[in-house]
């Protein structure tokens, strides 16, 4: 079977600084992978480069053996929540409907079929009663669930999430994790940038430890070992202690 993601010798710089250096890995279909690493390790940069949102200095990225451009429809992305205008005149329902845009293409508008699908996805994240609210009126956790619903509407084969659990409530985190696990059972591939090591063990099958370079990629236990972690987190002791607690 084709790998969900194949990355070869990827180099990316961000604002002129080298952010990702010579990273190669491949991710099996149907796995749930956490990308971890200290602050400034290039985790978000890596995801953005995979999606083509940042230019690559060198290297190649393939999704399911194909060029990323050809796979856009089947790849959903949930970015960090910061880059959004929360006062924009848009309702929760219309935000979720955005997920139907890639498959609709130019000059077509969401109709009954798309709306039914959007509503179903809103129900999955438990927010159908909020469908007519303006997006900024929701709590952080609810907003994140809306963006997950938008990703679900896309009916993706691969989901990339960037720090989805930052600043959200426990219940929302639980809802999101359960949905991700369900998706995984349906054979979808899920990649999450994550920084809370304490839960990494419960959430992921494999971890990819990044510190500009790829430090280690493998099963959770193999990565969360002291020697490996201290290599990446040499300068961030507190983080290392968290990892020890996690083990």
């Amino acid at each position: 079977m084709e790998k969900a993601i194949t990355v070869k010798e990827l180099h990316v710089s961000y604002h002129g600084n080298e952010a990702v250096r010579d990273v190669s890995f491949s991710i099996e279909q149907g796995s749930m992978v956490g990308i971890i690493g200290p602050n400034g390790a290039g985790k978000s940069t890596l995801i953005k480069a995979l999606l083509g949102l940042l230019p690559k200095d060198k290297g190649s990225v393939r999704f399911f053996g194909k060029d990323p451009e050809d796979m856009r429809k089947k790849i959903a992305y949930v970015p960090q929540r910061s880059n959004i205008d929360w006062t924009f005149p848009i309702t929760v329902m219309d935000t979720v409907l955005i997920g139907t845009y890639p498959s609709l293409g130019l000059f077509k508008f969401p109709r009954k079929k798309e709306k039914a699908l959007a509503l179903e996805c809103l129900r999955k994240v438990g927010l159908e009663d909020y469908r007519d609210r303006q997006i900024g009126e929701l709590s952080g956790g609810q907003q994140q669930r809306v963006f997950l619903a938008r990703a679900l509407v896309q009916q993706p084969e691969l989901l990339l999430l960037d720090e989805p659990f930052v600043g959200i409530d426990v219940a929302s985190e639980e809802t999101i994790v359960n949905i991700l696990k369900e998706l995984q059972q349906d054979g979808k591939t899920i990649v999450v940038v994550h920084h809370d090591l304490s839960k990494a063990k419960d959430y992921f099958d494999q971890l990819l430890l990044l510190n500009k370079e790829l430090v280690k990629y493998g099963d959770v236990e193999a990565v969360l070992n002291q020697e490996v972690m201290s290599k990446a987190y040499a300068n961030q002791l507190r983080f290392l202690q968290e990892a020890e607690v996690a083990l």
Partner: peptide
């Protein structure tokens, strides 16, 4: 509304 997602959609 969301230029990041717009870019991700190509």
């Amino acid at each position: 509304f969301d230029p990041t997602i717009a870019a991700a959609y190509g």
